[in-house]
Design a binder for these strands. Structure first.
Length: 561
RNA sequence: GGCCUGUUAGUCAAGCGGUCAAGACGUCGCCCUCUCACGGCGAAGACAGGAGUUCGAUUCUCCUACGGGUCACCA
Protein backbone atom coordinates (compact mmCIF):
# COMPACT_ATOMS: atom_id res chain seq x y z
CA UNK A 1 0.00 0.00 0.00
CA UNK A 2 1.22 3.41 -0.91
CA UNK A 3 0.62 5.26 2.36
CA UNK A 4 1.83 8.60 1.08
CA UNK A 5 -0.73 8.42 -1.66
CA UNK A 6 -3.42 7.35 0.79
CA UNK A 7 -2.60 10.30 3.00
CA UNK A 8 -2.89 12.68 0.08
CA UNK A 9 -6.19 11.21 -0.99
CA UNK A 10 -7.65 11.49 2.48
CA UNK A 11 -6.28 14.89 3.41
CA UNK A 12 -5.60 16.80 0.21
CA UNK A 13 -6.14 20.11 1.97
CA UNK A 14 -3.57 19.50 4.69
CA UNK A 15 -0.30 21.03 3.67
CA UNK A 16 1.40 21.52 7.00
CA UNK A 17 3.62 18.94 8.62
CA UNK A 18 3.89 18.15 12.30
CA UNK A 19 7.19 20.03 12.33
CA UNK A 20 5.43 23.16 11.13
CA UNK A 21 2.93 22.88 13.93
CA UNK A 22 5.55 22.19 16.57
CA UNK A 23 7.30 25.43 15.70
CA UNK A 24 4.24 27.42 16.64
CA UNK A 25 4.18 25.97 20.12
CA UNK A 26 7.65 26.17 21.59
CA UNK A 27 8.30 24.67 25.02
CA UNK A 28 7.12 26.84 27.87
CA UNK A 29 9.64 28.99 29.64
CA UNK A 30 9.05 27.93 33.23
CA UNK A 31 11.09 27.12 36.31
CA UNK A 32 12.54 23.64 36.60
CA UNK A 33 9.84 21.84 38.53
CA UNK A 34 6.90 23.93 37.47
CA UNK A 35 3.85 21.85 36.69
CA UNK A 36 1.50 22.60 33.86
CA UNK A 37 -1.94 21.22 34.50
CA UNK A 38 -5.30 21.68 32.99
CA UNK A 39 -8.96 21.16 33.43
CA UNK A 40 -10.57 19.83 30.29
CA UNK A 41 -14.30 19.48 30.70
CA UNK A 42 -16.89 19.03 28.07
CA UNK A 43 -19.41 21.83 28.29
CA UNK A 44 -22.48 19.77 29.07
CA UNK A 45 -24.23 22.02 31.47
CA UNK A 46 -23.10 22.00 35.03
CA UNK A 47 -20.09 21.60 37.24
CA UNK A 48 -19.84 18.24 38.87
CA UNK A 49 -18.42 17.83 42.36
CA UNK A 50 -15.86 15.46 40.87
CA UNK A 51 -14.87 18.21 38.47
CA UNK A 52 -14.27 20.68 41.27
CA UNK A 53 -12.31 18.02 43.07
CA UNK A 54 -9.96 17.51 40.12
CA UNK A 55 -9.76 21.17 39.51
CA UNK A 56 -8.47 21.82 43.01
CA UNK A 57 -5.74 19.27 42.50
CA UNK A 58 -4.67 20.79 39.22
CA UNK A 59 -4.83 24.33 40.49
CA UNK A 60 -2.81 23.56 43.61
CA UNK A 61 -0.12 21.56 41.84
CA UNK A 62 0.34 24.20 39.19
CA UNK A 63 0.29 27.27 41.36
CA UNK A 64 2.26 25.82 44.18
CA UNK A 65 5.06 25.01 41.75
CA UNK A 66 5.02 28.27 39.83
CA UNK A 67 3.44 26.59 36.84
CA UNK A 68 0.41 27.16 34.70
CA UNK A 69 -3.16 26.01 35.11
CA UNK A 70 -5.32 26.30 32.06
CA UNK A 71 -8.81 25.54 30.87
CA UNK A 72 -9.46 23.70 27.68
CA UNK A 73 -12.97 23.21 26.43
CA UNK A 74 -13.56 19.72 25.09
CA UNK A 75 -16.49 20.33 22.84
CA UNK A 76 -15.85 17.57 20.38
CA UNK A 77 -19.26 16.08 20.85
CA UNK A 78 -21.51 18.74 19.46
CA UNK A 79 -24.61 16.68 20.21
CA UNK A 80 -24.09 17.04 23.92
CA UNK A 81 -23.01 20.61 24.03
CA UNK A 82 -25.17 23.08 25.89
CA UNK A 83 -25.11 26.75 25.08
CA UNK A 84 -23.63 28.98 27.75
CA UNK A 85 -22.24 26.02 29.64
CA UNK A 86 -18.66 27.21 29.36
CA UNK A 87 -19.45 30.59 30.91
CA UNK A 88 -21.29 28.95 33.71
CA UNK A 89 -18.46 26.55 34.28
CA UNK A 90 -15.90 29.31 34.56
CA UNK A 91 -17.98 31.44 36.87
CA UNK A 92 -18.89 28.52 39.07
CA UNK A 93 -15.28 27.52 39.47
CA UNK A 94 -14.33 31.11 40.17
CA UNK A 95 -16.98 31.11 42.89
CA UNK A 96 -15.02 28.30 44.53
CA UNK A 97 -11.76 30.16 44.20
CA UNK A 98 -10.45 28.28 41.20
CA UNK A 99 -8.91 30.59 38.64
CA UNK A 100 -7.19 29.79 35.39
CA UNK A 101 -4.05 31.42 34.07
CA UNK A 102 -4.71 30.52 30.52
CA UNK A 103 -7.29 29.14 28.15
CA UNK A 104 -10.96 29.93 28.17
CA UNK A 105 -11.90 32.94 30.26
CA UNK A 106 -14.87 35.23 30.49
CA UNK A 107 -14.23 38.34 28.42
CA UNK A 108 -15.29 41.86 29.25
CA UNK A 109 -18.46 41.44 27.23
CA UNK A 110 -19.42 38.41 29.28
CA UNK A 111 -18.72 35.99 26.48
CA UNK A 112 -16.03 33.38 26.28
CA UNK A 113 -12.62 34.69 25.34
CA UNK A 114 -9.27 33.02 25.13
CA UNK A 115 -6.00 33.90 26.71
CA UNK A 116 -2.58 32.38 26.12
CA UNK A 117 -0.18 31.38 23.38
CA UNK A 118 -0.97 27.70 23.20
CA UNK A 119 -4.46 27.80 21.79
CA UNK A 120 -6.96 27.42 20.39
CA UNK A 121 -8.26 26.23 23.72
CA UNK A 122 -11.46 24.94 22.30
CA UNK A 123 -11.20 21.60 20.61
CA UNK A 124 -13.77 22.30 17.95
CA UNK A 125 -11.41 25.00 16.68
CA UNK A 126 -8.43 22.73 16.53
CA UNK A 127 -9.56 20.64 13.59
CA UNK A 128 -6.72 21.71 11.28
CA UNK A 129 -4.13 20.81 13.90
CA UNK A 130 -5.51 17.35 14.49
CA UNK A 131 -5.65 16.74 10.80
CA UNK A 132 -1.97 17.49 10.36
CA UNK A 133 -1.08 14.76 12.81
CA UNK A 134 -3.73 12.42 11.48
CA UNK A 135 -2.37 12.77 7.97
CA UNK A 136 1.11 12.10 9.20
CA UNK A 137 -0.04 8.91 10.89
CA UNK A 138 -1.68 7.74 7.68
CA UNK A 139 1.44 8.58 5.74
CA UNK A 140 3.44 6.41 8.07
CA UNK A 141 0.96 3.54 7.82
CA UNK A 142 -0.17 3.90 11.42
CA UNK A 143 -3.75 4.93 10.80
CA UNK A 144 -6.30 4.02 8.19
CA UNK A 145 -9.76 5.09 7.06
CA UNK A 146 -12.99 3.23 7.48
CA UNK A 147 -15.81 4.38 5.27
CA UNK A 148 -19.49 4.34 5.96
CA UNK A 149 -22.51 5.60 4.12
CA UNK A 150 -24.37 8.78 4.94
CA UNK A 151 -27.41 6.77 5.99
CA UNK A 152 -25.42 4.73 8.44
CA UNK A 153 -23.90 7.85 9.85
CA UNK A 154 -27.23 9.50 10.39
CA UNK A 155 -28.61 6.51 12.23
CA UNK A 156 -25.90 6.78 14.85
CA UNK A 157 -27.40 7.99 18.06
CA UNK A 158 -25.41 8.62 21.17
CA UNK A 159 -27.99 7.55 23.73
CA UNK A 160 -28.96 4.46 21.75
CA UNK A 161 -25.33 3.56 21.61
CA UNK A 162 -24.92 4.05 25.31
CA UNK A 163 -27.88 1.82 26.06
CA UNK A 164 -26.53 -0.78 23.69
CA UNK A 165 -23.12 -0.79 25.32
CA UNK A 166 -24.68 -1.12 28.74
CA UNK A 167 -26.96 -4.01 27.91
CA UNK A 168 -24.50 -5.84 25.76
CA UNK A 169 -23.74 -9.43 26.65
CA UNK A 170 -20.06 -10.02 26.70
CA UNK A 171 -19.47 -13.49 25.45
CA UNK A 172 -16.35 -14.98 24.00
CA UNK A 173 -17.96 -15.16 20.60
CA UNK A 174 -18.75 -11.50 20.73
CA UNK A 175 -15.14 -10.64 21.50
CA UNK A 176 -14.03 -12.92 18.70
CA UNK A 177 -16.43 -11.29 16.31
CA UNK A 178 -15.19 -7.83 17.26
CA UNK A 179 -11.67 -8.90 16.56
CA UNK A 180 -12.58 -10.30 13.18
CA UNK A 181 -14.43 -7.18 12.21
CA UNK A 182 -11.45 -5.10 13.18
CA UNK A 183 -9.12 -7.20 11.09
CA UNK A 184 -11.50 -7.07 8.15
CA UNK A 185 -11.56 -3.27 8.32
CA UNK A 186 -7.82 -3.17 7.90
CA UNK A 187 -8.11 -4.79 4.47
CA UNK A 188 -8.84 -2.40 1.70
CA UNK A 189 -7.28 -1.13 -1.48
CA UNK A 190 -6.39 2.32 -2.70
CA UNK A 191 -8.94 1.85 -5.44
CA UNK A 192 -11.71 1.29 -2.94
CA UNK A 193 -10.71 4.42 -1.10
CA UNK A 194 -10.75 6.41 -4.28
CA UNK A 195 -14.19 5.11 -5.13
CA UNK A 196 -15.56 6.02 -1.72
CA UNK A 197 -14.05 9.47 -1.87
CA UNK A 198 -15.46 10.02 -5.31
CA UNK A 199 -18.80 8.96 -3.99
CA UNK A 200 -18.51 11.47 -1.13
CA UNK A 201 -18.70 8.78 1.54
CA UNK A 202 -17.76 9.87 5.03
CA UNK A 203 -15.00 8.05 6.88
CA UNK A 204 -13.45 7.76 10.27
CA UNK A 205 -9.79 7.31 10.88
CA UNK A 206 -8.59 4.50 13.12
CA UNK A 207 -5.16 3.91 14.58
CA UNK A 208 -3.43 0.70 13.93
CA UNK A 209 -3.18 -1.02 17.30
CA UNK A 210 0.38 -1.92 18.05
CA UNK A 211 -0.18 -4.12 21.06
CA UNK A 212 -1.22 -7.58 22.03
CA UNK A 213 -4.03 -7.78 24.57
CA UNK A 214 -2.40 -10.82 26.09
CA UNK A 215 0.70 -8.88 27.02
CA UNK A 216 1.06 -6.22 29.65
CA UNK A 217 2.58 -2.77 29.59
CA UNK A 218 3.99 -1.20 32.69
CA UNK A 219 2.37 2.14 33.32
CA UNK A 220 3.06 4.62 36.00
CA UNK A 221 0.51 6.68 37.80
CA UNK A 222 1.54 9.23 40.37
CA UNK A 223 -1.34 8.33 42.66
CA UNK A 224 -1.45 4.59 42.13
CA UNK A 225 2.14 3.76 41.48
CA UNK A 226 3.18 1.11 39.02
CA UNK A 227 0.40 -0.59 37.11
CA UNK A 228 0.29 -3.43 34.64
CA UNK A 229 -2.28 -2.94 31.97
CA UNK A 230 -2.98 -4.96 28.83
CA UNK A 231 -1.41 -3.54 25.70
CA UNK A 232 -3.73 -1.73 23.38
CA UNK A 233 -5.00 -4.10 20.74
CA UNK A 234 -7.93 -2.10 19.43
CA UNK A 235 -7.95 0.13 16.42
CA UNK A 236 -9.62 3.07 18.10
CA UNK A 237 -11.17 5.88 16.15
CA UNK A 238 -8.94 8.93 16.18
CA UNK A 239 -10.91 11.10 13.82
CA UNK A 240 -14.67 11.05 13.66
CA UNK A 241 -16.43 11.52 10.36
CA UNK A 242 -16.87 15.20 11.17
CA UNK A 243 -13.12 15.56 11.19
CA UNK A 244 -12.94 16.11 14.94
CA UNK A 245 -11.19 13.56 17.10
CA UNK A 246 -12.72 11.79 20.07
CA UNK A 247 -11.09 12.31 23.44
CA UNK A 248 -8.09 10.02 23.04
CA UNK A 249 -6.46 11.61 20.05
CA UNK A 250 -7.33 15.13 21.14
CA UNK A 251 -5.78 14.43 24.52
CA UNK A 252 -2.49 13.33 22.97
CA UNK A 253 -2.21 16.20 20.52
CA UNK A 254 -3.49 18.92 22.82
CA UNK A 255 -1.63 18.03 25.95
CA UNK A 256 1.55 17.68 24.01
CA UNK A 257 1.23 20.97 22.17
CA UNK A 258 0.01 22.80 25.25
CA UNK A 259 2.89 21.53 27.30
CA UNK A 260 0.84 19.77 29.95
CA UNK A 261 3.17 18.07 32.39
CA UNK A 262 0.59 16.41 34.63
CA UNK A 263 -2.64 14.96 33.37
CA UNK A 264 -5.15 14.84 36.18
CA UNK A 265 -8.32 12.98 35.36
CA UNK A 266 -10.81 10.55 36.80
CA UNK A 267 -10.01 6.89 37.15
CA UNK A 268 -12.50 6.05 34.44
CA UNK A 269 -9.63 6.88 32.08
CA UNK A 270 -7.29 4.31 33.50
CA UNK A 271 -8.44 1.62 31.13
CA UNK A 272 -7.54 3.68 28.10
CA UNK A 273 -4.09 4.61 29.33
CA UNK A 274 -2.32 2.02 27.13
CA UNK A 275 -4.07 3.49 24.10
CA UNK A 276 -2.87 6.94 25.06
CA UNK A 277 0.63 5.73 25.62
CA UNK A 278 0.58 4.15 22.20
CA UNK A 279 -0.66 7.36 20.65
CA UNK A 280 2.08 9.40 22.29
CA UNK A 281 4.62 6.93 21.07
CA UNK A 282 3.31 6.93 17.48
CA UNK A 283 3.28 10.69 17.49
CA UNK A 284 6.76 10.90 18.94
CA UNK A 285 5.56 12.90 21.94
CA UNK A 286 6.98 12.80 25.40
CA UNK A 287 4.32 11.37 27.69
CA UNK A 288 3.04 13.53 30.50
CA UNK A 289 2.76 12.26 34.05
CA UNK A 290 -0.59 10.75 34.82
CA UNK A 291 -2.74 11.04 37.90
CA UNK A 292 -6.00 9.15 37.97
CA UNK A 293 -8.08 10.41 40.82
CA UNK A 294 -10.49 8.33 42.83
CA UNK A 295 -14.15 8.79 42.17
CA UNK A 296 -16.50 10.59 44.45
CA UNK A 297 -19.30 8.17 45.19
CA UNK A 298 -22.82 8.19 46.48
CA UNK A 299 -25.02 5.49 47.90
CA UNK A 300 -27.59 3.85 45.66
CA UNK A 301 -30.92 2.35 46.70
CA UNK A 302 -29.28 -0.96 47.60
CA UNK A 303 -26.73 0.68 49.84
CA UNK A 304 -23.90 0.18 47.39
CA UNK A 305 -21.39 2.82 46.52
CA UNK A 306 -21.84 4.22 43.07
CA UNK A 307 -19.97 6.73 41.03
CA UNK A 308 -21.71 10.00 41.75
CA UNK A 309 -23.91 10.48 38.73
CA UNK A 310 -25.49 13.61 37.40
CA UNK A 311 -28.86 13.05 38.95
CA UNK A 312 -27.58 12.32 42.42
CA UNK A 313 -27.98 14.83 45.18
CA UNK A 314 -24.67 16.53 45.65
CA UNK A 315 -23.39 15.90 42.16
CA UNK A 316 -23.98 19.37 40.85
CA UNK A 317 -22.38 22.37 42.46
CA UNK A 318 -25.77 24.03 42.13
CA UNK A 319 -26.97 21.69 44.87
CA UNK A 320 -24.43 23.13 47.27
CA UNK A 321 -25.38 26.65 46.39
CA UNK A 322 -29.05 25.94 46.86
CA UNK A 323 -28.48 24.13 50.14
CA UNK A 324 -26.56 27.17 51.29
CA UNK A 325 -23.03 25.87 51.68
CA UNK A 326 -20.39 28.55 51.51
CA UNK A 327 -17.91 27.89 48.71
CA UNK A 328 -15.04 28.10 51.17
CA UNK A 329 -16.61 25.29 53.17
CA UNK A 330 -17.04 23.03 50.19
CA UNK A 331 -13.47 23.67 49.16
CA UNK A 332 -12.30 22.97 52.68
CA UNK A 333 -14.19 19.70 52.68
CA UNK A 334 -12.75 18.66 49.36
CA UNK A 335 -9.28 19.47 50.55
CA UNK A 336 -9.69 17.22 53.59
CA UNK A 337 -10.83 14.44 51.33
CA UNK A 338 -8.05 15.05 48.85
CA UNK A 339 -5.10 15.21 51.19
CA UNK A 340 -5.33 13.11 54.30
CA UNK A 341 -3.10 15.44 56.27
CA UNK A 342 -5.02 18.58 55.40
CA UNK A 343 -7.33 18.35 58.37
CA UNK A 344 -4.44 18.10 60.78
CA UNK A 345 -2.74 21.04 59.13
CA UNK A 346 -5.92 23.06 59.35
CA UNK A 347 -6.36 22.43 63.05
CA UNK A 348 -2.86 23.72 63.62
CA UNK A 349 -3.32 26.66 61.27
CA UNK A 350 -6.92 27.71 61.71
CA UNK A 351 -6.45 31.12 60.19
CA UNK A 352 -4.01 30.48 57.38
CA UNK A 353 -5.19 30.65 53.80
CA UNK A 354 -5.53 27.18 52.33
CA UNK A 355 -2.91 28.07 49.77
CA UNK A 356 -0.29 27.89 52.54
CA UNK A 357 -0.89 24.19 52.79
CA UNK A 358 1.63 22.10 50.92
CA UNK A 359 -0.53 19.92 48.73
CA UNK A 360 1.06 16.60 48.00
CA UNK A 361 0.28 13.91 45.48
CA UNK A 362 1.53 11.29 47.88
CA UNK A 363 -1.23 12.00 50.33
CA UNK A 364 -3.97 11.42 47.82
CA UNK A 365 -6.19 8.43 48.30
CA UNK A 366 -6.68 5.91 45.55
CA UNK A 367 -10.00 4.53 46.61
CA UNK A 368 -13.27 6.29 46.01
CA UNK A 369 -14.93 8.12 48.84
CA UNK A 370 -18.52 8.60 49.75
CA UNK A 371 -19.67 12.13 50.03
CA UNK A 372 -20.38 12.76 53.69
CA UNK A 373 -22.78 15.60 54.29
CA UNK A 374 -22.42 15.41 58.05
CA UNK A 375 -18.73 15.97 57.78
CA UNK A 376 -19.28 18.77 55.31
CA UNK A 377 -21.70 20.36 57.75
CA UNK A 378 -19.19 20.19 60.55
CA UNK A 379 -16.42 21.67 58.45
CA UNK A 380 -18.80 24.28 57.25
CA UNK A 381 -19.68 25.28 60.80
CA UNK A 382 -16.02 25.72 61.54
CA UNK A 383 -15.49 27.79 58.46
CA UNK A 384 -18.44 30.05 59.18
CA UNK A 385 -17.53 30.39 62.84
CA UNK A 386 -14.22 31.91 61.82
CA UNK A 387 -15.79 34.49 59.58
CA UNK A 388 -16.44 38.05 60.70
CA UNK A 389 -19.98 39.26 61.30
CA UNK A 390 -19.59 41.33 58.17
CA UNK A 391 -18.74 38.25 56.11
CA UNK A 392 -21.65 36.34 57.54
CA UNK A 393 -23.89 39.24 56.71
CA UNK A 394 -22.88 39.37 53.10
CA UNK A 395 -22.94 35.61 52.68
CA UNK A 396 -26.39 35.31 54.18
CA UNK A 397 -27.64 38.27 52.19
CA UNK A 398 -26.29 36.94 48.93
CA UNK A 399 -27.90 33.57 49.48
CA UNK A 400 -31.18 35.06 50.61
CA UNK A 401 -31.34 37.28 47.58
CA UNK A 402 -31.55 34.12 45.53
CA UNK A 403 -33.65 31.91 47.71
CA UNK A 404 -35.47 33.96 50.33
CA UNK A 405 -36.37 37.42 49.23
CA UNK A 406 -38.29 38.23 52.42
CA UNK A 407 -35.30 37.56 54.63
CA UNK A 408 -32.96 39.36 52.29
CA UNK A 409 -35.10 42.46 52.61
CA UNK A 410 -35.07 42.26 56.39
CA UNK A 411 -31.30 41.94 56.41
CA UNK A 412 -30.92 44.88 54.15
CA UNK A 413 -33.43 47.08 55.95
CA UNK A 414 -31.28 47.19 59.08
CA UNK A 415 -27.73 46.15 58.47
CA UNK A 416 -26.52 47.43 61.80
CA UNK A 417 -28.91 45.20 63.67
CA UNK A 418 -28.01 42.20 61.54
CA UNK A 419 -24.34 42.75 62.23
CA UNK A 420 -25.07 42.97 65.94
CA UNK A 421 -26.98 39.69 65.73
CA UNK A 422 -24.21 37.96 63.84
CA UNK A 423 -21.67 39.23 66.32
CA UNK A 424 -23.13 37.22 69.18
CA UNK A 425 -20.53 34.76 70.35
CA UNK A 426 -18.33 35.53 67.37
CA UNK A 427 -14.62 36.19 67.53
CA UNK A 428 -12.46 34.91 70.34
CA UNK A 429 -11.14 31.45 70.96
CA UNK A 430 -14.35 29.49 71.13
CA UNK A 431 -16.83 31.00 68.73
CA UNK A 432 -20.39 29.74 68.57
CA UNK A 433 -21.18 27.36 65.75
CA UNK A 434 -24.84 27.85 65.27
CA UNK A 435 -25.08 27.33 61.55
CA UNK A 436 -23.17 25.66 58.80
CA UNK A 437 -25.18 26.89 55.88
CA UNK A 438 -26.69 30.13 54.79
CA UNK A 439 -30.06 28.49 54.79
CA UNK A 440 -29.73 27.88 58.53
CA UNK A 441 -29.18 31.50 59.38
CA UNK A 442 -32.76 32.62 59.15
CA UNK A 443 -34.27 29.94 61.38
CA UNK A 444 -31.65 30.75 63.96
CA UNK A 445 -32.04 34.52 64.04
CA UNK A 446 -35.67 34.87 63.03
CA UNK A 447 -36.86 35.82 66.52
CA UNK A 448 -34.88 39.03 66.34
CA UNK A 449 -37.29 40.26 63.71
CA UNK A 450 -40.78 41.37 64.62
CA UNK A 451 -41.96 40.16 61.25
CA UNK A 452 -40.76 36.65 61.93
CA UNK A 453 -41.10 36.40 65.68
CA UNK A 454 -43.49 33.91 67.15
CA UNK A 455 -43.63 31.83 70.31
CA UNK A 456 -42.50 28.39 69.24
CA UNK A 457 -41.90 26.60 72.53
CA UNK A 458 -44.16 26.11 75.50
CA UNK A 459 -43.27 26.18 79.18
CA UNK A 460 -44.46 23.10 80.93
CA UNK A 461 -44.71 22.01 84.54
CA UNK A 462 -45.08 25.38 86.22
CA UNK A 463 -47.87 27.31 87.75
CA UNK A 464 -49.06 30.08 85.45
CA UNK A 465 -49.36 32.49 88.32
CA UNK A 466 -45.68 31.96 89.20
CA UNK A 467 -44.63 32.51 85.62
CA UNK A 468 -46.65 35.69 85.42
CA UNK A 469 -45.29 36.94 88.66
CA UNK A 470 -41.68 36.35 87.65
CA UNK A 471 -42.23 38.04 84.30
CA UNK A 472 -43.93 41.01 85.91
CA UNK A 473 -41.04 41.37 88.37
CA UNK A 474 -38.51 41.19 85.58
CA UNK A 475 -40.30 43.69 83.38
CA UNK A 476 -40.67 46.04 86.32
CA UNK A 477 -36.97 45.88 87.17
CA UNK A 478 -35.38 45.77 83.73
CA UNK A 479 -32.85 48.50 83.09
CA UNK A 480 -31.05 48.38 79.78
CA UNK A 481 -28.08 50.12 81.33
CA UNK A 482 -27.33 47.29 83.71
CA UNK A 483 -24.23 45.27 83.03
CA UNK A 484 -24.55 41.55 82.63
CA UNK A 485 -23.78 40.78 86.27
CA UNK A 486 -26.30 43.21 87.65
CA UNK A 487 -28.81 41.96 85.13
CA UNK A 488 -28.39 38.40 86.26
CA UNK A 489 -28.34 39.31 89.95
CA UNK A 490 -31.77 40.80 89.46
CA UNK A 491 -33.03 37.57 87.98
CA UNK A 492 -31.67 35.72 90.97
CA UNK A 493 -33.50 38.06 93.30
CA UNK A 494 -36.70 37.57 91.36
CA UNK A 495 -36.21 33.84 91.60
CA UNK A 496 -35.73 33.95 95.35
CA UNK A 497 -38.68 36.24 95.84
CA UNK A 498 -40.96 33.86 93.94
CA UNK A 499 -39.83 30.70 95.69
CA UNK A 500 -37.30 29.56 93.08
CA UNK A 501 -33.78 28.67 94.13
CA UNK A 502 -31.26 31.29 92.98
CA UNK A 503 -28.29 28.96 93.22
CA UNK A 504 -28.03 25.92 90.98
CA UNK A 505 -25.81 23.92 93.33
CA UNK A 506 -28.19 24.40 96.21
CA UNK A 507 -31.09 23.54 93.99
CA UNK A 508 -29.54 20.32 92.74
CA UNK A 509 -28.84 19.26 96.29
CA UNK A 510 -32.53 19.43 97.15
CA UNK A 511 -34.86 20.19 94.24
CA UNK A 512 -37.98 19.38 96.20
CA UNK A 513 -37.42 22.36 98.49
CA UNK A 514 -38.21 24.84 95.75
CA UNK A 515 -40.72 25.54 93.00
CA UNK A 516 -37.80 25.48 90.60
CA UNK A 517 -34.52 27.18 90.02
CA UNK A 518 -33.12 30.36 88.57
CA UNK A 519 -32.68 28.36 85.36
CA UNK A 520 -36.43 27.94 85.22
CA UNK A 521 -37.04 31.61 85.82
CA UNK A 522 -34.60 32.38 83.03
CA UNK A 523 -36.46 30.04 80.76
CA UNK A 524 -39.73 31.94 81.43
CA UNK A 525 -38.06 35.12 80.33
CA UNK A 526 -36.33 33.40 77.46
CA UNK A 527 -39.50 31.97 76.00
CA UNK A 528 -41.26 35.28 76.40
CA UNK A 529 -38.51 37.23 74.66
CA UNK A 530 -37.23 34.76 72.05
CA UNK A 531 -40.17 32.43 71.76
CA UNK A 532 -37.88 29.51 72.39
CA UNK A 533 -36.48 27.42 75.20
CA UNK A 534 -33.03 27.72 73.67
CA UNK A 535 -31.30 30.85 72.54
CA UNK A 536 -27.97 32.56 72.60
CA UNK A 537 -27.10 34.74 75.55
CA UNK A 538 -30.28 36.48 76.69
CA UNK A 539 -28.62 39.59 78.04
CA UNK A 540 -27.15 40.33 74.62
CA UNK A 541 -30.37 39.44 72.88
CA UNK A 542 -32.22 42.03 74.97
CA UNK A 543 -29.64 44.66 74.20
CA UNK A 544 -30.12 44.12 70.52
CA UNK A 545 -33.89 44.08 70.71
CA UNK A 546 -33.99 47.21 72.83
CA UNK A 547 -35.96 47.85 75.99
CA UNK A 548 -39.25 48.69 74.37
CA UNK A 549 -39.42 45.53 72.29
CA UNK A 550 -38.22 43.37 75.18
CA UNK A 551 -40.83 44.64 77.60
CA UNK A 552 -43.46 44.49 74.93
CA UNK A 553 -42.78 40.83 74.25
CA UNK A 554 -42.79 39.98 77.94
CA UNK A 555 -46.10 41.68 78.44
CA UNK A 556 -47.83 40.09 75.51
CA UNK A 557 -46.52 36.69 76.49
CA UNK A 558 -47.84 37.22 80.00
CA UNK A 559 -51.23 38.08 78.64
CA UNK A 560 -51.31 35.02 76.44
CA UNK A 561 -50.96 32.71 79.40
C1' G B 1 -18.30 -12.00 30.59
C1' G B 2 -12.84 -10.36 29.72
C1' C B 3 -9.54 -6.98 31.63
C1' C B 4 -8.12 -3.32 35.28
C1' U B 5 -8.54 -1.56 40.09
C1' G B 6 -9.81 -1.37 45.16
C1' U B 7 -11.24 -3.48 50.33
C1' U B 8 -8.66 -0.67 58.09
C1' A B 9 -15.05 1.20 62.78
C1' G B 10 -21.58 3.88 60.09
C1' U B 11 -18.35 7.67 57.06
C1' C B 12 -13.31 9.84 55.77
C1' A B 13 -8.73 8.09 57.07
C1' A B 14 -3.17 7.28 59.43
C1' G B 15 -0.20 2.93 58.91
C1' C B 16 4.14 1.42 54.69
C1' G B 17 7.08 -6.54 58.87
C1' G B 18 7.10 -5.96 65.57
C1' U B 19 1.88 -0.16 67.41
C1' C B 20 -2.37 -1.68 73.78
C1' A B 21 -3.95 -0.36 65.08
C1' A B 22 -3.64 7.25 65.20
C1' G B 23 -7.02 11.11 64.24
C1' A B 24 -11.66 13.51 62.32
C1' C B 25 -17.18 13.33 61.57
C1' G B 26 -21.30 10.84 63.56
C1' U B 27 -23.36 8.14 68.07
C1' C B 28 -23.54 7.67 73.53
C1' G B 29 -22.04 9.26 78.61
C1' C B 30 -19.90 12.82 82.01
C1' C B 31 -18.07 17.88 83.14
C1' C B 32 -18.55 23.25 82.38
C1' U B 33 -23.20 26.03 82.49
C1' C B 34 -29.38 30.33 83.61
C1' U B 35 -30.97 27.38 78.11
C1' C B 36 -28.56 26.62 73.58
C1' A B 37 -23.95 26.78 71.15
C1' C B 38 -18.79 26.46 72.24
C1' G B 39 -15.16 23.92 75.03
C1' G B 40 -13.07 19.77 78.09
C1' C B 41 -12.95 14.52 79.42
C1' G B 42 -14.38 9.62 78.34
C1' A B 43 -16.94 5.20 75.93
C1' A B 44 -18.57 1.88 72.16
C1' G B 45 -16.82 0.77 67.22
C1' A B 46 -12.27 -1.68 62.21
C1' C B 47 -7.60 -4.51 59.54
C1' A B 48 -13.44 -8.78 54.14
C1' G B 49 -12.24 -14.45 54.35
C1' G B 50 -8.57 -18.37 53.55
C1' A B 51 -3.78 -20.14 52.44
C1' G B 52 1.48 -19.08 52.05
C1' U B 53 6.45 -16.28 53.02
C1' U B 54 8.54 -14.98 57.86
C1' C B 55 10.77 -15.75 64.44
C1' G B 56 6.59 -12.33 63.61
C1' A B 57 1.83 -10.13 59.30
C1' U B 58 -3.05 -4.73 58.79
C1' U B 59 1.58 -4.27 56.03
C1' C B 60 4.60 -8.99 51.12
C1' U B 61 2.51 -13.21 47.62
C1' C B 62 -1.56 -16.20 45.90
C1' C B 63 -6.73 -17.67 45.92
C1' U B 64 -11.91 -16.53 47.16
C1' A B 65 -15.74 -12.97 48.18
C1' C B 66 -17.56 -8.27 47.64
C1' G B 67 -17.33 -3.12 45.66
C1' G B 68 -15.85 0.18 41.69
C1' G B 69 -14.20 1.17 36.61
C1' U B 70 -13.89 -0.07 31.42
C1' C B 71 -15.02 -2.57 26.79
C1' A B 72 -19.32 4.09 21.84
C1' C B 73 -18.09 8.26 15.65
C1' C B 74 -19.35 10.21 25.04
C1' A B 75 -16.02 12.53 27.49
Amino acid sequence: MDYAKLAELLFPDVTETPEDVEKKYPPRDLPQDAKVTRFAPSPTGFVHLGGLYQTIVGERLAHQSGGVFFLRIEDTDEKREIAGAAQKLISTLAHYGVHFDEGAVIGEDGNIAYKGEYGPYKQSERGPIYRVYAKDLVRRGLAYPVFTTREELESLNASDKKAEVKSREWTEEFAEQQKEEMLARRNFTIEEVEAHLKNGDPFVLRVLASGDGERKVKCFDLIRGELELPENDRDEIILKSNGIPPYHFAHAVDDHLMGTTHVIRGEEWLASLPLHLQLFSYLGFKTPKYMHTAQVMSLDANGNKKKLSKRDMGASMDDYTRLGYAPEAVREYLLTVLNSNYEEWRSKNPDSPYTDFQFSIKKMSNSGCLIDFEKLEDISKNVLSRMTAEQIYSGALEWSRLFDEEFANLLEADKEKAIAVFSIGRGGKKPRKDFGRWSEVKPFVSFFYKELFKVEDAIEGFDKADIKSCLADFAGNYDENDDQNTWFEKIKQIAAKNGFCPDMKLYKADPSAYKGSVADVSSFIRVAVTGRLNSPDLFTVMNILGKAETIDRINSFKESL
